[in-house]
Every structure is written in C-alpha cells, then in structure tokens.
Simulated assay, not measured.
Amino acid sequence: MDRLARRPDLLFCYDTLQFDAVIEALLGRIPERMLASAPGYRAAALAARVSPGLIRASGSSAVGMLLTDLSYQEWEILDAFEYVRHDLREVTFSMGKSGWAYVWPGDDVQEDDWDAEGFQARHLAEYAARCARIGPRLAAGAQTASEGPGCRVSPTPQRGCARESWRTARSPPRAMAVFP
C-alpha cells in the first residue's frame, strides 16, 4: 500500500528535518514552515542513533516545525528518506490542525528526550553532507516514480521495473544505510 495515497499535506518535523541544512540537502530548497507541537508525543533519543524517534508520551508535547507547502515529489523524497524505520501517521497539533508525522515503532527508545542542540553542535555538518550525497538519488527516484503508474520512489534499481518501489524489496536501499 502506498503510504502517500491519502495525499498528505502538512508534515510535522521534530527531528533532523527541522534543520535548514538537512531539508535543503534533500529537497534543494527550504519549504514554508511554522512552529508546531504535537501533544501526547515526545522526540525520544534512540540507542546508537543521532536522530530521534517520535513516540507516544502522555503529558509530553513534541516541538518542531510544520512543513506546509511540500509538492507530491518532495513528499516522495522525504518518505524515501524516512521510510526505513518510521510509520507515517496522522497527528493532531496543539493549534487544532491535523497533519502527518513519521512515528517511531517503539524499539531502541531511550528515557531521555533527543537533544537537538547537541545534534546541531556535534553531528549536523556530517549528517547534512550525507543528506547532500543521497538527496539527488532520492530526487531522481521521486521524479521517475511520477512517470509511470504503479511505480513509486526507487533510489536504487529493483527487479522488474527500474522504477518499482523499494518498499517491496527485502532490504532498504543503500542510501538509507548511511544513517545510524
């Protein structure tokens, strides 16, 4: 099933995607955005990862950015970037609007919240450079996906249709494996 079939519009970024260097490396631009929070969630630190996971947490509210003007192709790029371990779910924000967020399935969660300032100081430059290296492949896959019915994002060639979704492959694309 295509996770983007419902044509999502607003994307909540509580993680590395809230940094200009990362989002621009992936999309080639910085989308329109506004501050937002997701009550009932928190951006949790994850074991052996520099990026967080959005998890349910009663009494908490995850803070981040709401991207408001993504094209479908940009959604495909970000979905390919986040797909390996995240579930795309509808979330209600503190201002009453609903949108979408990539939610962590629950394993490897630490008790601490993710430290965005620590990430920025220690990991952002290298992480953004990695995004810049895989961004063109993700964009090429998203562009190819829009060229034919039934074909979705494919940052790496698959069996059958070169544009076939890597979501059906047994392992994630190599582009995703570079992120701890």
Score class of each variant (00 low, 15 high):
residue 178 V to W: 13
residue 29 R to W: 02
residue 89 R to C: 10
residue 112 D to A: 15
residue 170 R to I: 00
residue 64 G to R: 06
residue 56 R to V: 05
residue 129 A to L: 09
residue 148 G to I: 00
residue 119 F to H: 03
residue 138 L to R: 07
residue 2 D to Y: 02
residue 173 P to V: 15
residue 77 I to G: 05
residue 126 E to T: 14
residue 122 R to Q: 14
residue 5 A to F: 04
residue 145 A to L: 04
residue 71 S to C: 08
residue 24 E to S: 14
residue 51 S to H: 12
residue 96 G to P: 03
residue 179 F to N: 08
residue 165 S to E: 04
residue 110 Q to K: 14
residue 80 A to V: 01
residue 68 T to S: 14
residue 167 R to E: 09
residue 160 G to S: 02
residue 48 A to W: 12
residue 66 L to K: 06
residue 162 A to T: 11
residue 19 F to E: 00
residue 54 L to C: 10
residue 55 I to E: 05
residue 133 R to I: 11
residue 106 G to M: 02
residue 38 A to V: 10
residue 82 E to T: 03
residue 87 D to Y: 13
residue 102 Y to L: 03
residue 42 R to K: 10
residue 141 G to L: 05
residue 145 A to W: 07
residue 103 V to M: 07
residue 41 Y to F: 15
residue 112 D to S: 13
residue 14 Y to Q: 07
residue 111 E to G: 10
residue 162 A to W: 09
residue 88 L to C: 01
residue 65 M to C: 13
residue 129 A to N: 06
residue 132 A to Y: 03
residue 120 Q to A: 14
residue 1 M to A: 10
residue 119 F to M: 04
residue 64 G to N: 05
residue 28 G to Q: 09
residue 145 A to T: 07
residue 94 S to E: 12
residue 66 L to I: 09
residue 177 A to V: 07
residue 92 T to R: 15
residue 150 G to S: 04
residue 92 T to G: 04
